[in-house]
Nucleic acid binder design. Structure first.
Length: 543
RNA sequence: GCGCCGGUGGUCUAGUGGUAGGACAUGAGCUUCCCAAGCUCAUAGCCCGGGUUCAAUUCCCGGCCGGCGCACCA
């Protein structure tokens, strides 16, 4: 898609009600978009499709956690520390730099983790090394080092004694409640907990419409697995071909993708975790059905320096828009990092009890003194004993496999990949070739003429289709061709027209968006037929 | 956050130191028996604040928003 076409998409999105910048009446605010009726419906359908695929059909649990969490949660998760950038601003040119990076990169410096130091100390080091602004060369010695945290801060209740943050990812809402969710899973690994919800990141400079937002929607799945015993069910997706862009390929710098099946990727070790490989396969199929163009799609492995603080390996699903690649989903292998941290910072038990096949006998020191009795009697000389005991299992910390989908980016990709133009009867036509299952409206219903009872009959047909649970738009304004074009622009896959024959034989025409072909269908069959077309149970050609 | 460019009805755009014109879209009506036809009428606009000026949509400064480049993207 050319740059020009992206501009056209943005224009169409605003004009037709997919998305628009928020609060334009007050000058607008960067990084926030409001979905109009079409966009909200599309997004809702994509979320529904995600839920169907990654929750319902996998037997996982879906939960709904708050968007505001107390500070302690993010102390434990590491976001308070690592989601924080140390910035120093040059007084001369105004350029902002990562203060910790400047200190670490200085030739005289042996500091390796400046980010862990207090800001004042980093400022002192800048002065000590005589570090100058990389942009203009002015000394930075007297400039303060300030935190810029990408989390939105707030206060819980009155006053500032109880700080909280808007979550930067939905995941922590799952991790922090892990003990409870494990209980719901009857303490049996593996199990998955999913959540669709908003997350917030106070981006320095949000851009590119829906691709980089300050308030975004994530669909995240945290799959808790036993790293020793649980194997991914890759047989289910073994033959799915993955377009892989691994670290070695990225370093080779020729941009070549490696096309491997899921099974090959695992067996050849290109994708280290069989669980990650499984989700790459499952997701690829799902993306294709959701309307992502598989010719503009790849899985790219994170480079070592790119990995998040919690991840040991990560693959991103990326889509191509306007010649650039954009992340859609991160498939991260988080190890047991998150529940380790919450176990460490809280008093909760973040383990699952794993029963051995055979109980084992161990010797270990036990201490269970009754100090109220022993203390006064023996003073310091309270001892402990070694006892033999039988253990039937052990407490383990599961590893976490996390597919984390950016819903807004998916919406944008699907729209960009659906954007199409062709010519009908010598007239240029713009249409969105959205899959019927995710299109905001499934069927448009029109009277050929707004008279002679056609309108009343058409309205009845629309009513019938709505009663069947279909998303219907009724339109009786202007010429029929104009109404077709309107629906084309919002991606409505089918249009039903009530004409004079309808009054005679109770059939209507069904017109398909992409081909503009038409077929006659009896009205009584219409709800089932349209429903089957939407669900891909029937094809238009076979009508 | 920095630099460059931009901001005129819902959308696209013309133009001006004396408050604006078009196209498309939308609504009403006429016409119209399947793909943005035509006619009539109607609704609707100079991003915000400050400065210069008798007068600012226009010139200047700042802000906000957008595009591009840089930085950033846990």
């Amino acid at each position: 898609m050319s740059e020009r076409e992206t501009d056209r998409l943005t224009e169409l999105a605003k004009r037709r009600g997919f998305f628009t910048g928020t609060a334009a009446a007050y000058g607008g605010v960067a990084g926030f978009y409001t979905y109009g009726p079409q966009g909200a419906a599309l997004k809702d359908n994509l979320e529904g499709a995600w839920r169907d695929r990654f929750v319902t059909r996998e037997g996982h649990m879906e939960i709904d956690a708050p968007t505001v969490m107390p500070e302690a949660v993010f102390e434990a998760s590491g976001h308070l520390e690592t989601f924080n950038d140390m910035l120093v601003e040059c007084a001369e040119c105004g350029e902002s730099h990562r203060a910790d990076h400047l200190v670490e990169d200085h030739p005289d410096s042996d500091v390796e983790d400046a980010e862990a130091l207090p800001n004042a100390e980093v400022a002192d080091l800048i002065a000590e090394f005589g570090i100058t602004c990389p942009a203009c060369g002015a000394p930075l010695a007297d400039e303060p080092v300030e935190d810029f945290n990408l989390m939105f801060a707030t206060n819980i209740g009155p006053g500032d004694s109880s700080p909280g943050y808007l979550r930067p990812e939905t995941a922590q809402g799952i991790f922090v409640e892990f003990p409870q969710f494990a209980e719901y899973a009857r303490n049996q690994l593996p199990f998955g907990v999913a959540q669709i919800g908003r997350a917030y990141r106070n981006e320095i400079s949000p851009r590119k419409g829906l691709l980089r937002l300050r308030e975004l929607t994530q669909a995240e799945l945290e799959h808790f697995v036993d790293p020793e015993d649980d194997e991914a069910p890759i047989d289910r997706v073994a033959d799915v071909v993955l377009p892989l862009y691994s670290v070695p390929q990225q370093k080779a710098d020729d941009g070549e993708l490696q096309e491997l099946t899921v099974r090959e990727a695992v067996e050849e070790g290109v994708v280290e975790s069989d669980w990650i490989a499984f989700y790459l396969g499952l997701s690829k199929r799902w993306y294709a059905r959701a309307g992502v163009d598989m010719d503009r799609f790849r899985y790219r492995q994170h480079l070592p320096g790119e990995l998040s603080h919690y991840a040991s390996d990560c693959w991103d699903a990326e889509s191509e828009i306007d010649g650039g690649w954009h992340e859609l989903t991160g498939f991260a292998y988080r190890g047991s990092y998150d529940i380790d941290k919450h176990a460490e910072y809280s008093d909760e038990d973040y383990t699952v009890f794993k029963q051995y096949d055979e109980p084992i006998t161990v010797e270990r020191p036990t201490v269970d003194p009754d100090m109220s009795y022993l203390g006064p009697e023996f003073g310091e000389h309270t001892g402990f004993t070694i006892e033999e005991s039988t253990e039937s299992g052990e407490h383990v910390r599961p590893h976490i496999v996390e597919p984390s989908f950016g819903v807004d980016r998916l919406v944008y990709t699907v729209l960009a990949h659906a954007y199409s133009q062709d010519e009908v009867d010598g007239e240029e036509r713009t249409y969105l070739s959205l899959p019927a299952a995710v299109a905001p409206t499934t069927v448009g219903v029109f009277p050929l003429m707004d008279r002679d009872g056609l309108n009343d009959r058409a309205y009845e047909v629309a009513r019938t289709l709505r009663d069947a649970g279909l998303a219907v738009t009724y339109d009786d304004s202007g010429a029929i061709g104009r109404r077709y074009r309107r629906q084309d622009e919002v991606g409505t896959p089918f249009c039903v027209t009530v004409d004079y024959d309808t009054l005679e034989d109770d059939t209507v025409t069904v017109r398909e968006r992409d081909s503009t072909a038409q077929k006659r269908v009896p009205v009584p069959e219409l709800p089932d037929t349209i429903g089957a077309l939407r669900d891909d149970d029937r094809s238009f050609e076979d009508l």
